[in-house]
Amino acid sequence: MMEFFSALWDHPFLQHALIGGLLASIGCGIIGSYVVVKRIGFLAGGISHSVLGGMGVAFFFGLSPLGGALTAAVASALLIGWVRLTWREQEDTLIGALWAVGMAIGILFISKTPGYSVSLMSYLFGNILMVNLADIWMMAGIDLIILLTVSLCYQQFLAVSFDEEFARLRGVPVTFFYLLLLCMVAVTVVLLIQVVGLILVIALLTLPAAIAAHHVRSLGKMMLLATLLGALFTVLGLIISYAPDLPAGATIILVAGVSYLISLLFSTARKRRELRQQLVKAVQ
């Protein structure tokens, strides 16, 4: 651990990685909480995997892969949202198809791009150590957009996440806010791709929020705790992976996964204990 901290002092790339991880935690905590309570993990998975299509096209034409990712993520969020609102009965089949088609487009374009390289692999599996100053500014910008949007539309997002039918009856433009929420998921996916890559992004989007849901009982607190947990997992993942030279993204996800299992066991045991106490009280 000391080796990591002395390297952190000496190497700007590690400082960038740490700042990038902390910035990514903000998006993952806030939007991840919506993904968990609204149970749209599958939709978020579809969005994150279809991002490869945009990246592949951007690579092929020599454009910024992150620009391609952002465009593809938002387009796929709108398309998936429309599919879900229009063909609810076949929602999972159509989202599964978009998920695979997005990836297939990406693979085709990448295969025809001369000099297909390591940098694309870093987007697939993540390489937080490659985060540079420009990426940090972009991540901070995305966080700002997320924070502003969620602050302004908190009640509407809460209503749409909780009970769409009732929100519609109260005159909330449910379709608009639902699609806006999916667009927020899309930009968060792009934010997190820098850290863990698009293959693993869904885990970082859902695990900190799912752990937070075990321990707090309000959406606001859930967002705060998920952000702190996301920060803890990225920092711990960086520290653990540094000395043995392990892939940081995969290590971060493993830390999050193990923490989720421990939290699940702890919260299940607590619920059983509470239930037993209630039964004892009822009998008395």
């Binding site: 209503a159 109260r170 849901a213």
Partner: peptide, 14 residues
């Protein structure tokens, strides 16, 4: 869903 009774009733004011 992580929501209190009061927050749920407040939704009637949307």
């Amino acid at each position: 869903f992580p929501i209190t009774v009061e927050q749920t009733v407040m939704m009637g004011r949307l």
